[in-house]
């Protein structure tokens, strides 16, 4: 029952996404600008990047970062419809039906992470079109799996913030406060090795770091088994913790008057 209930909510969210086609392209504009503008602005940092063992161009270095940028923002914004649903009564409709509270949260999160992966795959396509090389096109599959898993964790953050916020203003305030630092404090744009020690330390506490490193290894084909295993373990731990916390917080919050 839990599974089919989760699927019901997932189905509804995906239907809504499919009907809002204009949003798909609008949300691609920003990451596309990042890849084109920042990718070319910092093109001359190539020697620096090569000094820490990366052989490609700067755009190739930062492409995984922009894929993660898309994933971070698509998933962290995704929970906002929890607030709409509470305002417009869909939430009450779901809460007075026999489905469980946590399946509502899970269905939303799964839909957000799939949407996030769809958006990121478009950015990956743009990157490839701009000349970013990928060792093997089949590698798109593991990359997308990583994006889905990572986005599931981040959608958890979004759902937690949305469930505890009483207003749109609070939600956007908290989300903007979280989103940018999480992106900046990672090796998305610049190698960890070249950061000051304290910044590198903070970046290592950030789950974004491990996703970026993992995707970068896959794209360049420089896979080291130990580091891949470690990155995957960190991401999985993060996802499990977030999914559990999000269903707990969501279930607790929706039982309070809105």
């Amino acid at each position: 029952m839990m599974l089919s209930d989760t699927y019901t909510i997932f189905w509804r969210e995906m239907k809504r996404y499919r009907k809002s086609r204009s949003g798909v392209l609008i949300r691609l504009i920003q990451p596309a600008i990042w890849i084109i503008v920042i990718g070319n602005t910092f093109a001359s940092t190539r020697p620096l990047i090569q000094s820490v063992g990366f052989n490609g161009s700067y755009i190739e270095f930062m492409a995984p970062g922009v894929i993660m940028l898309t994933a971070i923002f698509t998933s962290i914004f995704g929970g906002v419809n929890t607030l709409w649903d509470r305002r417009y009564g869909f939430m009450n409709k779901a809460l007075t039906s026999p489905i469980s509270r946590s399946s509502i949260a899970l269905g939303k999160m799964l839909a957000i992470s799939l949407i996030s992966a769809l958006q990121s795959s478009l950015i990956l396509g743009i990157a490839i079109a701009l000349g970013v090389s990928i060792t093997n096109l089949l590698m798109v599959i593991p990359i997308m799996l990583i994006v889905i898993a990572f986005s599931l964790g981040f959608s958890g953050i979004s759902v937690i913030v949305a469930a505890t916020s009483k207003s749109q203003e609070t939600f956007w305030g908290v989300i903007n406060f979280l989103g940018m630092p999480l992106f900046m404090l990672s090796p998305a744009l610049f190698p960890l090795e070249l950061l000051p020690n304290w910044l590198a330390f903070v970046a290592k506490l950030n789950p974004v770091t491990y996703s970026v490193l993992l995707i970068r290894q896959i794209m360049t084909g420089t896979i080291q088994i130990f580091s891949v295993a470690f990155d995957i373990a960190v991401i999985c731990g993060f996802v499990v913790a977030m999914v559990a916390l999000a269903s707990y917080v969501f279930t607790r919050e929706v039982n309070k008057p809105f």
Binding site: R12, K15, R16, K19, S20, Y88, G89, F90, N92, K93, T96
Partner: peptide, 12 residues
């Protein structure tokens, strides 16, 4: 439960 405000999904 039929709520006061319409709760149908407009895009569906």
């Amino acid at each position: 439960y039929v709520q006061q405000d319409s709760t149908v999904d407009e895009y569906l």
